[in-house]
Amino acid sequence: MEKSNRELSGKIALVTGGTKGIGKAIADKLASNGATVVVTARKPPEEESGHHFIAADLTDGNAITELTGKIIEKYGTLDILINNVGGTASPAGGFQMLSDDDWNRDIELNLLASIRLDKAMVPKMIEKNSGVVIHVSSLNGKIPLYQSNFSYGVMKSALNAYSKTLANEVAKNGVRVNAVSPGMVKTTAMETFLESYAQSINKTVSEASQQLMDSLGGVPMNRLAEPEEIANMVAFLVSDGASYITGANMLVDGGTFPAV
């Protein structure tokens, strides 16, 4: 297919945390749909991806100013912003295990990084009366788990509320804002986690994976998502096909969320 015929040709997209896992899958998908893709991460990717890489630690406000400057200087604009960066290094074990530092780190990475970057980029979108912002959230934002990911889940809930509020504000300016909430995804990080977890409980990887799915109340599709399956949703949402979708939070979870 000619690049110019693809649905995102001519569009400039930024994917934060775009060198691994879901972020990499999103970057690849947007590029294959014709977009020019910029990815950020703290460290350069191990393999050349073909995307424009800019090193940035998004928990650092100055790094965001620098990143924004580089993008505007080189491309003059941004059409698609994928706030994908997130995660947690906080310990498992529930409420009492989490220090102020743990909370602060989770807030920075999962909420404030997006808010700061949106604040830098959305005004450019408002100026030209068009743009799409995606916040990659998590099923954890809707299904709290206290044993692990406690503060991460709380931050993703906050991100969901923030995303909806921003959507309400900028819809009149031609900017669409949506959240995507993946369930369990088979990223390299997840595979590494499953292997170490399996070892620690003296079970096979598939038993460990089953146990993890059970901890969410079971996954009706009975498997983890592939990163590409999340990327497909993001690629749909940023396309013109989703022109009436804003303020939504799209679950991609194989049916895991238990309620209507």
Binding site: A167, N168, A171, G183, P220, M221, A225, E226, E229, I230, N232, M233, Y244, I245, T246, G247, A248, M250, L251, V252, D253, G254, G255, T256, F257, V260
Partner: peptide, 14 residues
Amino acid sequence: ASYITGVNYIIDGG
């Protein structure tokens, strides 16, 4: 949409 089931997607312009 191979991983999407059990969802209710609202398409309502917000």
